[in-house]
Simulated scan of single mutants.
Amino acid sequence: MRYSVALIAVLLAVPALAQEPTSRAPGTGETRSKVEISTGVDFERGDFGTPSDIEKTTMPLTIGVAKGRVRASAQLPWVRVTSPANVIAPTGPLGLPILVDPTRPTTRSTRQGLGDLQVNAAYDLPVTGFFASLRAGAKLPTASTDKGLGTGKADYSVGADFAKPMGAVTPFAGVTYTMAGAPDAFDLHNSFSGQAGAAVRLGNATTAQLGYVYAQSPIKEGDNDQRIVGGMNAGFGKSLSLGVYGSGGLSAGAPDIGGGVTLGFKVGG
């Protein structure tokens, strides 16, 4: 799922802060643990800079825990990919990389199964007037390499996110540095990605977001990923939240279209 690390964090987590702009930054003095379980559906279609169209559907199950200034999460997705059989479409930070293995057949097929497990942790910095956090994550190779759902290698990432409440509007930005594990047949390099945009509070528990995302290709002379993303997140009572989002590609390395829905349930707090 290409949104799993940087993009969903921006579209859903930062707008949640914007819903209560006058409250303290998360983690300041809070001692109770908060747990959120979420799932959803994510769909993308495009050639991603390859010679053929690729369709990818992902259904992730995510468990997140927050206590004080520390947040952690684990996500295991179910993935369905329709593409030529030589396309490897792993789960990772922004979904990179999409690889083409010349040793595999080019016949079009549909494969499905568990994706790569992702674990992430973040720390909210003790600052006033704006929100800032540092994060780190890892993509662990639990997906099938035979089906082309994973590379069989672990990826690691570090990054930072920032947001500044300004009344009903909260501009946000973030940057991620990804260290991609390289399968034997590929030469991958470390890469940067980033995002910037704004969330607008529409009500006590509803926000809308619009942003730009850039992800450098880890493949030499590969096409970078540039896209416009937007979404809306709404809370229902103290426990339920619903988010919808979509994207449009601006470069050859991005999906032509993407979108999805997330459903979250909070426990505690």
Rank of each mutant, 00 (worst) to 15 (best):
T178N: 02
T91W: 00
L125V: 13
T103E: 04
T142G: 01
R71H: 05
L134Y: 01
R104Y: 09
P77A: 14
A89E: 07
A136R: 07
S109G: 05
Q112D: 15
W78S: 11
P84T: 15
G68Q: 12
T170F: 01
S83D: 03
G174A: 12
M179E: 04
L149R: 04
G92Y: 03
T170V: 10
P90T: 14
T128G: 02
K67P: 00
A143C: 06
A160C: 06
G174P: 01
I98Q: 00
K139I: 15
P97T: 12
D155H: 03
K139T: 15
A132H: 03
D146V: 15
G92E: 08
P90Y: 11
V81E: 01
L149G: 03
G95N: 07
V81A: 05
V175N: 00
S144P: 00
T91G: 10
T106S: 10
A173I: 11
V169A: 07
D184F: 06
V175H: 00
D187W: 01
A160Y: 03
P93T: 15
L99A: 05
G181E: 08
A85G: 04
F131Y: 10
G95S: 06
T103C: 01
A136E: 01
W78A: 09
L134I: 14
P126G: 11
G129V: 14
F172A: 10
K153G: 03
P105D: 12
A89L: 09
R80A: 06
T151I: 05
L94V: 14
A163H: 07
D101T: 09
S144D: 13
A168P: 02
P105W: 12
I88N: 01
F162A: 08
G174E: 08
V158Q: 04
F162Y: 13
T82D: 04
A173F: 05
K67S: 13
V81H: 02
S133W: 04
A122Q: 09
A185V: 12
R108T: 15
T176I: 14
S83Y: 02
K139M: 13
L94K: 09
D155N: 09
R104S: 03
G115W: 06
V70C: 00
T151M: 03
G95A: 08
D184M: 03
G181V: 10
D124E: 14
I98A: 02
M179Q: 11
L94C: 01
A180E: 04
S73C: 12
G113C: 12
A136H: 02
V81G: 01
S144M: 08
A180C: 00
N86K: 11
V100H: 05
T107G: 08
F162Q: 03
F162L: 14
S73V: 09
G115L: 09
G152C: 11
A154V: 09
A66S: 08
S133H: 08
A182I: 08
A180Y: 12
T91F: 01
R135M: 12
K164P: 00
V119R: 06
A160M: 12
P165N: 12
T178L: 02
A182W: 02
G167N: 11
T103L: 11
K139Q: 11
L125M: 13
D146A: 15
G150W: 05
P84H: 11
A132S: 06
V100E: 03
A180K: 04
A182T: 14
Y123Q: 04
V119K: 01
T170E: 04
M166N: 01
P165H: 10
V127A: 06
Y123N: 05
G129Q: 09
T107K: 08
A180G: 02
V70T: 10
G167F: 08
T151S: 10
